[in-house]
C-alpha cells in the first residue's frame, strides 16, 4: 500500500508535462467540439447562436451525402489488411543483416517523405487511361490472351482497360448517387486506384518501421530456444515472432482503423478533389468541407462526433479481441 501511494505521486509527476499540454490543446478542444456539436454555430453572424440539442445529428441521419461518403471511407479501407501484412513481411526481410540494408530501408521509406505533388503527378501518369504504363500492360494482356474473343463467345459485351481515376466504377458495383449496387458500375475505378496507391505508399512506410522496431525488441534467447527445439521458419514465426509482435500489431491495427476512418483527406485533396462525382470523397473530407467551406462549424463537429462513435466502438472491439491475446 505504501509503495502504491509512492507510485501514484511519481506517476503524477511523470504525467504532468504531457497532461498539461494535452489538457489545453487536446482534451479542452475536444470537449469544446462536443459542446458545439449540439449547437447551430455558423461563422455567419446573421445566424444567431442557439443550442439545438440533437438537431445536427438528426439532420445527419437523413443526410444522403454523409452516408455516401461513409461508404466511400469504408471502401477505401479495404487495402488496409494487405498493407499491414505487406509491411510485416517487408520488415522481416529488412531486419536481415544484409550488405546495404540501410539503402533498402531508406528506399522503401522514400514514398512516405516524397512530396505529395510528385507522387500525385507520377501516379496520375501511371493511371493515365491512354498513355499510362498500367493500362499498357492490361491492354497487352487483353490482346495477347484474346480475352475479348472469349468473353464475346460467352455472350459478354467485351472488356476494355479501366479509366481508373476518371471512373466511378468499383469492385462492388456501388452507385455514385445511391447506397446500392448496380451491374453497370462493376469494374475498376477511382476508389480502387486510390487503394492500390495507398498500399504502395504504406507498405514500406510507418508501419514497416514500427514492425522493424518491434522485431528488434524480440529477445534473442526466445528465437534460439525455439531453434534448439528444432522449429522451422514458419514455426518460429508462428510461436515466437508473431506473439512477440502482438503489442505492435495491436497498435498498428488500432491506429490503422483510426487513420482509415479519419483518412482519405490528403489523397482526395491532391489526387481527385473528391471526384469523379464525389466517389472519392471521404467523411474527413466532408467534415473539412462543412467547417472550412460551408462554415457550418456546429454541423461539422456533429459529423466528427458521429465518426468518433464509430471509431470508438471499433477500437473497443479491437481492444477486446486484442486483450485476449495480449493479457492486459
Amino acid at each position: 500500500m505504501k509503495a502504491r501511494r509512492h507510485e501514484f505521486r511519481a506517476a503524477l509527476g511523470f504525467l504532468l508535462p504531457n497532461f498539461l499540454g494535452f489538457g489545453v490543446f487536446t482534451a479542452g478542444p475536444v470537449l469544446f467540439s462536443l459542446a458545439i456539436s449540439i449547437s447551430n454555430w455558423h461563422l455567419h453572424r446573421t445566424i444567431p447562436f442557439r443550442w439545438i440539442a440533437l438537431g445536427n445529428f438528426l439532420e445527419l441521419l437523413v443526410d444522403k451525402d454523409f452516408w455516401l461518403y461513409s461508404m466511400n471511407t469504408v471502401y477505401l479501407m479495404l487495402g488496409m489488411p494487405v498493407a499491414i501484412a505487406g509491411s510485416l513481411l517487408l520488415a522481416i526481410l529488412l531486419s536481415q543483416r544484409l550488405r546495404g540494408i540501410v539503402v533498402y530501408r531508406t528506399l522503401f521509406y522514400l514514398p512516405t517523405f516524397t512530396s505529395g505533388v510528385a507522387l500525385m503527378l507520377l501516379w496520375k501518369a501511371l493511371y493515365n487511361p491512354e498513355f499510362g504504363a498500367l493500362n499498357a500492360a492490361i491492354n497487352w494482356c487483353i490482346d495477347t490472351f484474346r480475352v475479348n474473343e472469349v468473353v464475346r463467345a460467352l455472350g459478354g459485351a467485351g472488356v476494355s482497360a479501366p479509366t481508373w481515376l476518371l471512373s466511378t466504377k468499383n469492385l462492388f458495383g456501388l452507385e455514385a448517387e445511391q447506397v446500392r449496387s448496380a451491374t453497370a458500375q462493376w469494374g475498376l475505378g477511382a476508389r480502387d486506384a486510390l487503394i492500390i496507391m495507398g498500399i504502395w505508399i504504406a507498405i514500406g512506410g510507418n508501419n514497416m518501421l514500427l514492425y522493424l522496431a518491434g522485431l528488434s525488441n524480440i529477445p534473442p534467447e526466445l528465437v534460439e530456444a525455439a531453434q534448439l527445439d528444432g522449429a522451422g521458419r514458419w514455426a518460429v514465426f508462428r510461436n515466437v515472432t508473431w506473439p512477440q509482435l502482438a503489442p505492435t500489431t495491436f497498435f498498428i491495427v488500432v491506429m490503422s482503423f483510426i487513420g482509415g476512418l479519419q483518412g482519405g483527406f490528403e489523397q482526395a485533396r491532391v489526387m481527385t478533389q473528391g471526384g469523379p462525382a464525389g466517389t472519392t470523397t471521404t467523411v474527413a473530407y466532408y467534415i473539412y468541407t462543412k467547417a472550412f467551406e460551408e462554415l457550418m462549424v456546429g454541423y461539422a463537429a456533429a459529423v466528427s462526433w458521429l465518426l468518433f462513435t464509430a471509431i470508438f466502438v471499433i477500437t473497443m472491439i479491437n481492444w477486446r479481441l486484442g486483450s485476449k491475446e495480449l493479457n492486459y
Partner: peptide, 11 residues
C-alpha cells in the same frame, strides 16, 4: 485520438 483533427482546429 479518434476525434478528427480538423474539428479541434477551430477550438
Amino acid at each position: 485520438l479518434m476525434i478528427p483533427g480538423v474539428v479541434v482546429m477551430i477550438p
